[in-house]
């Protein structure tokens, strides 16, 4: 994919509040928002802390590890896929896909690690695979 096409794809997914997240994702980095006031991570990224309402949010590089909180295999799709909530080592939980492993291997509590995969539209997405 050309740089121009990727820029266009990112423009479709990002808004002013989340641009920094998606620009980092394009470089293969998962940034997590952390509140400097209460010290907690949150998800999805926002500029107002959902835990303490502070507006002092910093972005931190994620360790890229976690475990499956829950999952479901969508069978009614042209290509079946696994959607999941992954509880990250930092303590916050994000929606994602589990990729590059047999659906039958996926379990609640399974340790996973971060991989980036391009969406069909061309923006890089944080996904997870069996650790």
């Amino acid at each position: 994919m050309t740089m121009a096409a990727r820029e266009e794809a990112l423009a479709r997914i990002a808004n002013p509040e989340t641009k920094v997240f998606w620009e980092a994702a394009a470089r293969g980095r998962l940034l997590l928002p952390k509140c400097t006031s209460c010290g907690r991570f949150h998800w999805y990224p926002r500029r107002v802390c959902p835990h303490c309402s502070s507006t002092t949010i910093e972005m931190h590089a994620a360790k890229g590890t976690g475990e499956v909180y829950s999952y479901s295999i969508m069978r009614r799709a042209k290509v079946p896929y696994a959607v999941a909530y992954v509880r990250l080592s930092e303590g916050t939980t994000m929606m994602t896909n589990i990729v590059d492993c047999d659906f039958a291997d996926i379990q609640v509590g399974m340790p996973v690690k971060l991989v980036f995969r391009d969406s069909p539209e061309g923006y890089p997405l944080p996904m997870f695979t069996k650790a």
Partner: peptide
């Protein structure tokens, strides 16, 4: 933006529940 790209429909969201 943090959900749609991963394919949340209704059935698989309730499936996770």
């Amino acid at each position: 933006a943090f959900e749609s790209p991963f394919g949340p429909a209704l059935a698989n969201m309730y499936g996770m529940v």
